[in-house]
Design a protein around this nucleic acid. Structure first.
Lengths: 231, 231
DNA sequence: AGGCGAATACTCGATTTCGAGTAATCGGGA
DNA sequence: TCCCGATTACTCGAAATCGAGTATTCGCCT
């Protein structure tokens, strides 16, 4: 997949908006907000204008007129070109048909879980779970309101997907917290012990790994087999 | 939550690595790769060096020595400072305890689903599902290999989380494809009809919304109630 | 009538991000 | 031994990103 000339997701939304009808950038931003697309695609004024001019430079859109109302700033209206339409279709094909790795904040945090004591982690996970629960409730309420308004689900599938992700995250946070608390997550006993030793002896956590036998004894035999580059 | 001075997730990983022991940037990058953390946190050389120097500028890390081996480039070894340790803990607390919205590629694509004909979307979703299935199988295999190596699950929870997300995405893609195919997703009948009309009459899709009654008749009464700013 | 907060429409430049490029050394095979 | 590809370690400048700031006008309330 050759890299896109203009890669920002907002550029995709701009092409999508302009494929309906010509608009000026600010109008695009209002429409995205009115339709709630700004929840799915990060909208930022700075990026919006630079992205539009990048699309212009590459011939995906073109300025069709510049209006002036009294002393107000000019509004430059852009229209999508044929090559812009092609780019949009290619991009949408890719977005739907080809999974691309997204980096999530939680994943980054989980990668350093052992840096905190188990009980601290359990607390934090439970806090997260509570907030998630609330966010999920709000999303569900929004969906019900849309149902009442008779707007067909087709127009908010992206929000249903968000809901699935949030639900999966909640389930994971809950399960992980429970497993740590019950010492069911393999390695937790060792983790707990390590933090106790550090607290008792007042040593630096790094010390533990320099002479594991001394601190942990034979109980955690697997430590010997762990390749040195894996923590 | 006041904005972080250095916000890149890679900076978080740098602080996490240096809280184990002093290292030079390239060594950090190798360790992150060896431990597979680069799958959870995007690693890029350009960013690595600029992020380290930003951390240095703000006093979170400091250069402790500069080694030179023959003619090879200098290696500047950095150590974490007390304020860096505090920043790392605060950051980890936030990453685990507070859900932050991540933007996913698929969500952006779903927001423009009606731009393609229903059958095209079903095809793409099924293609995605196949790729996802494969990725999931690979992840599961990796986890089994880690089990065999006796590395406790504690050290790869982030990968288990990834697996949950991928699984949720697969389930969603499959269900959505099925619902569209069976006309169970509300709005699909209208969507299908719209694409047929466009194909038959050779008109621009935007036309449909200018005079819906003319094209769709009374069958899709809800169209009248939809606020004009919502597509 | 006129005051003021919200909405309109965009600009600007300081950071950040990126990844290809460079240049040296190591190590294993012919 | 000497060649070559992999590894080590980092640099550089172009491009993207951001969000606070500006200036005007609308419209509602008193």
């Amino acid at each position: 997949m050759a890299k896109r000339k203009v890669g920002n997701a907002l550029a995709f939304a701009v092409l999508g908006s302009l494929s309906e009808r010509p608009m000026h950038p600010y109008e695009i931003s209002t429409m995205l907000k009115a339709r709630g697309k700004d929840v799915s695609i990060k909208l930022n004024y700075g990026s919006l204008y630079s992205v539009v001019s990048a699309l212009d430079k590459h011939g995906y859109v073109e300025a069709v007129e510049t209006l002036r109302d009294g002393n107000r700033p000019e509004r430059t209206v852009y229209a999508i070109t044929d090559s812009g339409r092609a780019e949009f279709e290619d991009w949408l094909t890719e977005l739907i048909g080809t999974p691309e790795k997204d980096f999530s904040q939680l994943e980054a945090g989980l990668a350093y879980l052992p840096a905190f004591a188990p009980d601290r982690v359990v607390e934090l996970l439970e806090k997260r779970a509570k907030v998630l629960e609330q966010q999920i409730a709000e999303l569900v309420a929004t969906h019900e309101a849309l149902q009442v308004q008779q707007l067909p689900r087709l127009f908010w599938v992206e929000s249903e997907f968000r809901l699935e992700l949030l639900t999966a995250e909640l389930k994971f946070a809950r399960r992980l917290a429970a497993e740590i608390q019950a010492d069911e997550l393999e390695g937790t006993a060792f983790w707990r012990k390590g933090f106790e030793i550090v607290a008792e002896r007042g040593i630096n956590p790094g010390e533990l790994f320099k002479d594991p036998l001394k601190y942990f004894g034979e109980e955690f035999a697997w430590l010997q087999h762990v390749p040195p580059e894996a923590k």
